[in-house]
Simulated scan of single mutants.
Amino acid sequence: MKQLTGEALRGLPLPQHDQGDNKEGRGQVLVVGGCLAVPGAILLSAEGALRAGAGKLQIATCRSIAPQLGLAMPEAMVIGLPETAEGGIAADAARAILAPAARADAVLVGPGVIGAGSMAGLVTALLQEAGEATAFVFDAGALDGLSDCVTDLRRARRGAVITPHAGEMARLLDISREAVEAEPLRHARQAASELGCTVVLKGGTSYVVNASEAPWVFDGGTIGLATSGSGDVLAGIIAGLLARGASALHAALWGVYLHAEAGRRLTQRHGGIGLLARELPAEIPSIMAAGSHPP
């Protein structure tokens, strides 16, 4: 295994952007998710994507909460999707986002989705219609149906990143959570091999794995990151880096590091627990600017 550190990442610089580049040059992110019960999760992901440097942002969410999210995130274009009686994204929502997804450089699916019954068909449709330049991040409610989408996942030219915690990994592999926690690296490798994607297995120690390179391990997180919405921010950061042109593996590695470093800085200022996920994104630009790579 390779140890994920700031020093190690100096050899894996993020894409450069000229001072005069317009927003098109830093890529477009589409974030798909949310529901009436958890409308804020998609905002955490969306801000994470912009703070990681993406140039343009679209949000696709349940029609009844789309206007409010547009006001809360004025930087985004918001697409209202058909929704179920329970307030989730409807199974026929894919047709409303296929064209925006095909134009996006990175598509993040899943934050704020409760009850993933409608997501498998949507994920399949997105993967089948994606352009060659589109990369994907699957998180939370989009993870459960991925085992039915392996062929389409492997067709994603720019790759896909999944960001499960131990419980989500257990459901994905149809095993117990205890089995994942006992051998996290083994099961991260299994998922990477079976799905053909880059895996970020989140936890007190996190693992970043794909099928073609040695795995990475990161043990520099803080207890403050174990809080509601933290994973949504991480997924958004990774999507933003993908939109800028980073590979799936490099976006995953940088995303894990930037997320953890944001938590470390907040911990230094405010203490070990009680951090809010909404505080994390604002730390990201200065962390990138302080590194040896261009902001």
Rank of each mutant, 00 (worst) to 15 (best):
K2T: 10
L4A: 09
A8L: 07
R10H: 05
P13T: 06
P15V: 10
Q16E: 13
D21Y: 00
Q28F: 00
Q28G: 07
V31D: 12
G34R: 11
L36V: 12
A46F: 03
A49D: 06
L50W: 00
R51M: 06
R51T: 01
A52G: 06
G53F: 00
G55Y: 02
Q58D: 11
Q58R: 15
S64A: 15
S64Q: 13
Q68H: 04
Q68S: 15
L69G: 09
P74Y: 12
A76C: 13
M77C: 14
V78S: 14
L81E: 08
L81C: 12
G87E: 09
I89H: 06
A91N: 12
D92W: 00
A94I: 05
A96L: 14
A99C: 05
P100I: 07
R103A: 12
R103K: 08
D105L: 05
A106P: 11
V107A: 04
V109T: 11
P111F: 03
G112Q: 10
G112C: 08
G115C: 10
A116S: 15
G117L: 13
S118I: 13
M119P: 15
G121P: 11
L122Y: 09
A125C: 11
L126M: 11
L127N: 04
G131E: 09
D139W: 08
A142K: 11
L143V: 11
L143E: 11
C149A: 10
L153Q: 08
A156I: 12
V161L: 05
V161Y: 01
V161R: 02
P164H: 03
H165F: 10
A166N: 14
G167L: 14
A170K: 08
R171Y: 01
R171D: 09
R177T: 15
R177G: 14
V180D: 13
A182M: 09
R189K: 12
A192F: 08
S193L: 13
S193E: 12
V199K: 09
K202G: 08
G204Y: 04
T205A: 07
S206E: 04
Y207M: 10
V208H: 00
N210V: 06
S212F: 00
S212T: 14
A214H: 07
P215S: 04
P215G: 08
D219Y: 01
G221D: 03
T222D: 00
L225Q: 02
A226M: 02
G231V: 08
D232K: 12
I238D: 04
A239K: 09
R244S: 00
G245P: 02
A251P: 03
A251S: 08
W254Y: 01
Y257N: 03
L258S: 01
L258Q: 07
H259T: 06
A262G: 14
A262H: 08
R265K: 04
L266M: 05
T267M: 07
R269Y: 00
H270L: 12
I273N: 05
G274L: 05
L275A: 04
R278P: 00
L280Q: 02
P281K: 02
P281Y: 01
E283D: 02
S286C: 07
M288H: 04
A290L: 01
S292P: 10
P295A: 10
